[in-house]
Design a protein around this nucleic acid. Structure first.
Lengths: 350, 350
DNA sequence: CGCTGGCACTCTCCGCTATCGAGTGCTATT
DNA sequence: AATAGCACTCGATAGCGGAGAGTGCCAGCG
């Protein structure tokens, strides 16, 4: 994949040069201009030959006959693979990120700020999603508050510091004491449990011990049935920022509209990230070729990483940007923030 | 204002006709086309005369000599004033709104959905903001959860159902029992209090009774100092949706970028709404001429209303759209949702 | 006196054509 | 195998001219 058979050093160098000039100029690059700008000057004609080969191999395309060549997704993949990944973030960007994230209070806050600063430094769209709580979603504490007749506020704190609140409408009214008992029962018995298995366990116990705990279990069951511990919760939080950057990138108005519409449908964004970002992988991942899953997103790349603390995945952060973007820079930014994330929570949890 | 001196019935009718055709076509309207489409057919020439007068009076403008006339902000204000406000929302829109808002759990949820549905029915930008809690912000319940050493989660439930959570870093560690005592103290003594006066009262009692409650009051004070009951809280929540609609409206790319950037800076949006939406007023308010406060927003209108339950203002909802938009329709939509808001909370609180 | 029709004039928009520049592919040459 | 030259293609740009829409003004009609 990284270096397909039949591609030698000369070809690789020229391909890289083409991609880099295309990224910086945005216009199809022709043999002549390339010959002029390139230091080890080969003649334009020789470059033409190489370009023809590269086009045959699927790395280059022509918008139309007699225009310059444009890199294909395959070319970008090649390019990304041969990046060293050693580029450092500029001090200016580092301090911008530090500044934006300073004083972060909790996960939601962090994700919101991150999506914003990502869009700033990458000139793309910054996207963050809190991890689907279905995975490793441990209960820290639950607490019920009676608001009105048959109306209860449930606040669930998960181990990773996510707070989820939800107003429940119950079929029967519960007294404050019932609620307190239910909360105490759940907190004592199930702290640290995964929400999903917790609900199953409660259902099971309900069967077995119906006679004993009758009143208590009835309350618990009623609360659970109304979704007090729903693991879907109020869906994942999704933050998308930097739509303005899209305007610069995209010339086709109709497509721009579609892109914005897509980004506003949060579920689509969640799907996109979860389709490509594997929670297990450690490093930054670059996906060229989003058009497979999302047709409007041809000519866009996803550069993302899981946001994790130790082993626990709390969410994902990503930049969606045009294929012609500064890869090294954006990759460093994403990985920098991902590292900051880990550090930040370790330091403040320890 | 509504009918400036020197403007008679004929002028009013023609002005209205001009505005309406401009709204529906989007193109400068000329005397000939107007003469053709209008039922009580005056000749084009007569209309020209009237148009010249209206232009002198500041209601119409010409993009260039020998183009049609375009309404000025002043014309829109006239137009909006003479609307009866009797238009009903179409059943389709009503059910769209009902459907989108069905199953709403809490205020944040409501505001988020509202901004979305507003953008859908108005083809503008839907904006909602939760009211600055500085006003009438009564404490319902507070609850503390120890997360780690010197790290405490504070969850504050306000009387209107807003839940605010915040992670506090304390200078000294507090035991779980300290936290429980502090919460109990606050809940018992200050339920229903305004957050601001509450903090002052605590400071006062701290002075007086230092000797007695020493340990308890120390905890309480520490928690307050770290902002457990901060009335600013994590700022107002702001929801902006429908950026895609902006794309259709706006032709100038640079301006589009600026608009999107502005809308992403939440504070700007809050400022905008609070500048024009008076919490005390009951009805829908239409503001033509946003360019005074926000230069990029020339050619945009704000149609908004406070979201209130009885006397309490919980937030505001608004549509920002191009000056040429369907005013009657949007006004009904905004007012419909504002009414639904009141109903919804009355019904579920009662 | 107000309304109307007519006329000359001014713009913008659209399509057509000619031209230019950048780029390609092929072939002859070193 | 690399290079230089040549003919050809295509997109972008500028200039031109006509069509359409609109205006202002003036003279005539009820």
């Amino acid at each position: 994949m990284g270096s397909p058979s039949g591609i030698g050093k000369r070809e690789r160098e020229i391909l890289t040069a083409i991609i880099e000039t295309y990224i910086s100029t945005g216009e199809p690059v022709g043999s002549r201009t390339l010959a002029r700008t390139n230091r080890e000057s080969l003649s334009a004609a020789s470059i033409r030959n190489v370009m023809a080969d590269l086009a045959d191999a699927g790395f280059l395309e022509q918008p139309h006959t007699s225009a310059g060549r444009v890199p294909t997704p395959q070319a970008y993949r090649f390019y990304v693979n041969q990046l060293t990944g050693e580029a450092r973030l500029s001090p200016a960007d580092e301090s911008l990120i530090q500044g934006s994230l300073h004083g972060t209070q909790d996960l939601q806050d962090f994700l919101e700020r991150t999506s914003h600063v990502l869009s700033l430094v990458s000139h793309g769209i910054g996207v963050t999603v809190s991890s689907t709580p279905a995975l490793r979603n441990a209960l820290e504490h639950v607490y019920f508050q009676r608001l009105a007749e048959r109306k209860v506020l449930a606040v669930v704190v998960t181990r990773n510091g996510l707070v989820r609140d939800r107003v429940l409408r119950l079929p029967n009214d519960l007294a404050i004491s019932d609620l307190e008992a239910a909360a105490a029962y759940i907190n004592q018995n199930f702290r640290g449990w995964d929400m999903e298995t917790l609900r199953n366990e409660i259902a099971k116990r309900l069967q077995q011990e119906r006679s004993d705990y009758d009143r208590l279990m009835a309350s618990v069951e009623q609360l659970c049935a109304q979704g007090a511990l729903a693991s879907e919760g109020p869906a994942q939080t999704v933050y998308v920022e930097g739509a303005a950057n899209l305007v610069i990138t995209e010339q086709d108005k109709e497509r721009l509209r579609q892109l914005l519409t897509t980004l506003e449908e949060k579920q689509r964004v969640v799907d996109l990230l979860s389709a490509y970002l594997d929670a297990r992988q450690e490093a930054v991942r670059v996906v060229v070729g989003l058009e497979d899953t999302m047709p409007h997103l041809n000519n866009f790349v996803l550069i993302g990483a899981p946001a994790r603390v130790g082993d626990e995945v709390m969410g994902s952060l990503a930049v969606i940007g045009p294929t012609r973007m500064d890869y090294e820079h954006t990759i460093s930014a994403v990985s920098y923030i991902a590292r900051m994330f880990d550090q930040f929570w370790n330091q403040s949890d320890g």
